[in-house]
Design a protein around this nucleic acid. Structure first.
Length: 283
RNA sequence: GCGUCGGUGGUAGAGUGGUCAAUUACAACAGACUGUAAAUCUGUCGCCUUAGGGCUCCGAAGGUUCGAAUCCUUCCCGACGCA
């Protein structure tokens, strides 16, 4: 049996992914699975540019609002949930479509990477965070010299995770890429730089007029800490219009750095009309 | 007008005779990415280069010195104080 095709719509922020995906979903009886690391949280709406009910136009959306912002969510959880959703949707005889801008999350499902089954060990992390990168690297070298060889020796976050895994399993397993069950058709939306900038500016301004500050207040009131808000990004910690625009532009560039190396992505200029039927015929 | 302090690379801001093309931070550009991923991290960042070096440079012009971003003189500009 031939692998089922699943369309993935990705791209930088503010390129119009959500709207396009809804249109496609309407045409092919689809349901949308979001691939956004912040939109999984309840109550992070305005600041993350989450699609609203009206914009969904009746198309079911999944993996939005799945967890409280007080808790932490991870790629591995995302992968598990997304795979479940794909199966559910197919079982319902509908077509799953993935849409989002978090490259790591998209790769987690489309590349079939298997993450080591070691949940975060917060206690250990707290201890390790106090150490320097050099110390951490030495520790890792003792635990797992193979992983130490190819890790970024200056990146504490990665070092800590590698130590966490090797302490639990004895060593960090080699990367396993299981051939995915589905054939993912990756469609990238891009905008010329000047246009992207304009759209980002517009979007950020709209964020402020549609209640970003109120949203932050509400999150605080519900017990989300300042530290946590900071983790959610520049929109959520003492945001000003100017700052958010600048940071969003930088973020968009980092997104592109990620996407650029994936040669499977077929790119479309979002400032021009997109021909759906040719898009759906893509192999 | 007098006095004081200051004018440094895209920006902020160190440096106050040689080790200075000039600490650092930010921006910019490129890149990495094994459960934080809008996170985290790396490289480049005056100009030219056959990558060894070469050239220009710290408001401007002169001067002192073997040697000046650093000292002196004049000028220009800014902030503050006194008129």
């Amino acid at each position: 049996m031939q692998n089922k095709k699943i369309i993935v719509i990705l791209g930088q922020t503010a390129t119009g992914k959500s709207a396009l995906t809804v249109k496609i979903a309407k045409k092919i009886n689809g349901e949308i699975i979001s691939a956004d690391s912040r939109q999984v949280y309840k109550g992070l709406d305005v600041g993350t540019g989450k699609i609203n009910k009206k914009e969904m136009m009746g198309v079911p959306h999944h993996l939005l609002d799945v967890i409280s912002p007080k808790n932490k969510f991870t790629v591995a959880e995302y992968k598990k949930l997304a795979e479940e959703k794909i199966e559910e949707i197919i079982a319902r005889e509908k077509t799953p479509i993935i849409c989002g801008g978090t490259g790591f999350y998209i790769d987690a499902i489309t590349k079939g990477v298997i993450f080591p089954e070691v949940p975060p060990n917060l206690k250990l992390r707290k201890v390790l965070e106090k150490k320097s990168a050099v110390e951490l690297f030495k520790m890792l070298k003792k635990l797992d010299s193979a992983r130490a060889k190819n890790i970024d020796a200056k990146n504490k976050v990665r070092l800590i995770r590698a130590i966490e895994i090797s302490r639990a399993l004895g060593k960090v397993p080699e990367i396993i890429e299981q051939k995915p069950e589905y054939k993912f058709i990756k469609i990238g939306l891009y905008l010329p730089e000047a246009q992207l900038k304009k759209k980002i500016e517009k979007r950020v301004k709209k964020m402020f007029t549609s209640g970003l500050l109120k949203e932050i207040k509400k999150l605080k009131k519900s017990g989300v800490s300042n530290k946590r808000l900071k983790e959610f990004g520049f929109e959520y910690f003492e945001p000003t219009e100017e700052k958010v625009i600048l940071e969003t532009l930088k973020y968009a560039k980092r997104q592109m750095t990620w996407f650029k190396r994936d040669k499977e992505i077929k790119w479309f200029d979002a400032s021009k009309p997109i021909n759906f039927s040719s898009l759906l015929k893509l192999e």
